[in-house]
Design a protein around this nucleic acid. Structure first.
Length: 423
RNA sequence: GGAGAGAUGGCAGAGUGGUCGAUUGCGUCUGUCUUGAAAACAGAAGACUUGCAAGGGUCCGGGGGUUCGAAUCCCUCUCUCUCCGCCA
């Protein structure tokens, strides 16, 4: 959620930035928020005056009672009753205005940072890095779903039988490859100074709200209605929410967490080649990195995270590119996002495997995640996160790019984890 | 799932209708002392919000109520703990 003071200080700038994020009626929204806020403050001030008067009278009555002058209180009591009647109206009004203001405010996405390119579609994303040459696969190279079948690594039909489409069953070396990747990513994270967390994969409504999945994207999460819990779409949700309503010490920043979790996404409305094989699943594994940063450091940290993820992809010997997402393609809560895409040799397309974002104070404002600065005041921290990495598309690219007549070659760094060098 | 107890400031733990936003202890921070530290002593410190400020308002798990006045009484929800049952 954007800070009110940001809108107040420079509404023109906010409107301009919001338009980058495809908010067509930005000007109207901003104006409405500010008008509502004026109204709210005004009404609240009047209410406060009334309350103050009541408090004073109550205190007066108190001291009269204690000195035994009971009769003298009757007139005052009546007076308070009248004031109370009055304040009820204001109270109701304030409540309405607060709600109104809040509902307007949550509809505003985060402002794109200064480096974010203008644009509406994925074509407008800025390619900030791309591998020089793409590998040539043999003409008879096949997509990963065929390889998965050929080597009996992943069984999509079996998943359909026991659950449904988008819930694959990993088998044998396929399962071991998954496990190897998870451990590899976690170990790398630890070596980078991240602290490992194993969070619940069901979260309550407050958590879904804290990171911004609720109320807008409710339909994208699986919901266990009997217990009113949501299956997490990413570890970002439980991990970031660990710090909901927390005031950190300044010297504890940055907080660096890494977590492996399964992720669940309903992905309603997807179809076709996009969802073939491992391209898009309802359940998948991901290792996520989350940082809570000092506002002055968050962009520096974003670059560190980007470099870290780049190192991961490179260590797996996968051809990749990095995109800086344009305003229109960015997530609702993000101020700047880098997407990592690996080249899927047999499908001849780029697959997104990681998304690294700085949310600045957008999430922490909702979360009430603050740190106490040396001046003794509390300030909102910045939050960042990134996939490091999402497994399925990594697996897809590994299988496709590394297929040889002798089998599928496992990247060197993974061999200690898989226990085999070829599939 | 059944029975009982409870939810107060970073933690522990008082407070059962009237200057209580809250006694006290521990922890934290700042001074004094010390070469430095410890100890001792003195002092400081909750959160949100409004206001230039003085000041004001709200917050004792959440919501509602009684009352001139509620942390304190009533209703309700949530959660935690103890015991029993079940169980990876």
């Amino acid at each position: 959620m954007l800070l009110l003071q940001t809108l107040r200080q420079n509404p023109a700038f906010v409107i301009e930035r919001l338009q980058l994020k495809r908010v067509a009626d930005a000007a109207e929204l901003v104006e409405a928020v500010l008008a509502t806020d004026d109204d709210r403050k005004n009404t609240k001030n009047q209410l406060d005056l009334l309350l103050n008067e009541q408090n004073q009278l109550a205190r007066e009555i108190g001291s009269l009672m204690q000195s035994g002058q009971k009769e003298a209180t009757e007139g005052l009591k009546a007076k308070v009753a009248a004031l109370k009647e009055q304040s009820r109206t204001f109270e109701a009004q304030v409540e309405v205005l607060e709600k109104q203001q809040y509902e307007l405010l949550v509809r505003l996405p985060n402002l794109p940072g200064p480096l974010v390119p203008a644009g509406k579609t994925p074509e407008d994303n800025e390619i900030v890095y791309q591998v020089k040459s793409l590998p040539e696969l043999a003409p008879n190279a096949v997509p990963h779903w065929d390889l998965a079948k050929q080597y009996d690594l992943i069984d999509f039909e079996l998943g359909v039988k026991i659950t449904g489409a988008g819930f694959p069953v990993y088998k044998g070396k396929g399962a071991r490859l998954q496990r190897a990747l998870i451990n590899y990513f976690l170990d790398k994270g630890l070596a980078e100074g991240y602290f490992e967390i194993q969070p619940p994969i069901l979260v309550n409504e407050d958590s879904g709200f804290g990171t911004g999945q609720l109320p807008d994207k409710e339909g994208q999460m699986y919901y266990a209605g009997l217990d009113q819990l949501y299956l997490i779409p990413t570890a970002e949700v439980p991990v970031t929410n660990l710090y909901r309503d927390v005031i950190l010490k300044e010297e504890d920043l940055p907080v660096k967490n890494v977590a492996y979790t399964p992720c669940f996404r309903r992905e309603a409305g997807s179809y076709g080649k996009d969802v073939r094989g491992l391209n898009r699943l309802h359940q998948f594994d991901k290792v996520e990195i989350v940082q809570i940063a000092h506002p002055d450091k968050s962009y520096e940290i974003l670059e560190q995270m980007r470099n870290y993820v780049a190192g991961l992809v490179e260590s797996l010997e996968l051809p990749y590119r990095i995109l800086r997402l344009c305003g229109g393609d960015m997530g609702f809560a993000s101020a700047m996002t880098y997407d990592f895409e690996v080249w899927s040799g047999a499908q001849q397309r780029w697959l997104e495997v990681s998304s690294v974002s700085n949310f600045e104070s957008y999430q922490s404002n909702r979360l009430k995640l603050r740190y106490k600065a040396s001046d003794g005041k509390n300030y909102l921290a910045h939050t960042l996160n990134g996939s490091a990495m999402a497994l399925p598309r990594i697996v897809a690219a590994l299988l496709e790019n590394n297929q040889t007549p002798e089998g599928i070659r496992i990247p060197e760094v993974l061999v200690p984890y898989t226990g085999f060098a070829f599939i």
